[in-house]
Design a protein around this nucleic acid. Sequence first.
DNA 1: AGATTGCTCTCTCTAAAGAGTGACGCGGGC
DNA 2: GCCCGCGTCACTCTTTAGAGAGAGCAATCT
Lengths: 211, 211
Amino acid sequence: MAAIIRKEISVILADDHPVVRDGLAAMVNQQADMEVVAEAGDGDEAITLYERHHPDVLVLDLRMPKRDGVSVVQRVLEINPKARILIMTTYDGDEDIFQCLSQGAKGYLLKDAPRQEILSAIRAVSQDRPYTSTTVAAKALQRMAKPSLTQRELDVLQLVAEGRSNKDIARRLSITEGTAKTHVKAILTKLDAISRTEAVAVAHKRGLIHL
Amino acid sequence: MAAIIRKEISVILADDHPVVRDGLAAMVNQQADMEVVAEAGDGDEAITLYERHHPDVLVLDLRMPKRDGVSVVQRVLEINPKARILIMTTYDGDEDIFQCLSQGAKGYLLKDAPRQEILSAIRAVSQDRPYTSTTVAAKALQRMAKPSLTQRELDVLQLVAEGRSNKDIARRLSITEGTAKTHVKAILTKLDAISRTEAVAVAHKRGLIHL
DNA sequence: AGATTGCTCTCTCTAAAGAGTGACGCGGGC
DNA sequence: GCCCGCGTCACTCTTTAGAGAGAGCAATCT
């Protein structure tokens, strides 16, 4: 009979795709120094399981049902400010990652990363060392140069993306049409777009909105 | 030493995410009646490996680098008209699946499907029985009622989604602005949208375009 | 206190979008 | 042969979007 051995690095996986969890679990459990102690299929579950197990590393998908990655990062860091979180996402344009990283997530990974990169990212984060894939690092620099939208502008942008007219947007946000136009104009300028439709395309590419 | 036993169902996995391939491979190889004989990371590779191995089932991600699922389905069915292909995708709104299914793909799956569903889908397809998840079947019915866009309209829609003006669209397609407007109008009517921006939102939801 | 930033609102003016209609040639199906 | 869907083009008319230019007001930072 095998004795229960505590491996050095305990990991919780949070992803809404069973396939992805299986894949990651297989990779992680094959390693001598790490093991998966729990798996979560949505944001709420991720938080519950984190509280219960307090793992060394939480591997977290950015897009999940019930509660998205950003808010999970917030909540987990409230529970344990020293939590080590590795963000994982499919889309390299996702703007949310910057929000996560600035909130205290330790690392970021793309889902199409090769096995080795994923494992070394987990090891890095487990030692409290930040890990950022080169593609993201490059994007971070690009992003510095570009102006960021205010919260209100993001609200407007969301409605623009849904196809609402200025008048409609004004009604929904309880502002005048003129003000809505002002916001839209600011959005167009900041995103360097000529029309609202182009703005939506740009915003989507940058992951500012999720259609 | 173990003898090399041919399992009943040979499978090729095609997906650009190593994690997903690992997950699927782990699931499949655990089964007594099936095994993974090759893995592809992009569309071209999928075709090459299909030709080499002629597996019982090809599990194919719809979105891949180099060559997307639709064209892989076409090519593989040229090679072997009796090929059994199981389409897999992340997005349940994807319009492309209908194209694949009508071309001869045998089944369709969402990536967030539970393990059991994935395995039974592979078994069904391996016996040449069609498999369609209930969510997709429901969507197929919905789709019947809705008018479909012509190829030309899809061309225009793509440009609309990029934020181009009617004048710009006309120039790029070498037609007059009036004609471009006619197409846009038809698109708005068919998608039941009030503005071009809303049309883009609707089209994106239905998977008619990929931003 | 002064500067900055975000949100609000107002005004004018031009360009574009979209509704409504009609029409013509071309191809395939009945 | 005829009808129909498609792509093309043309015309009018109303609504909306977007550029430009200010201005007040609150919260925050320095």
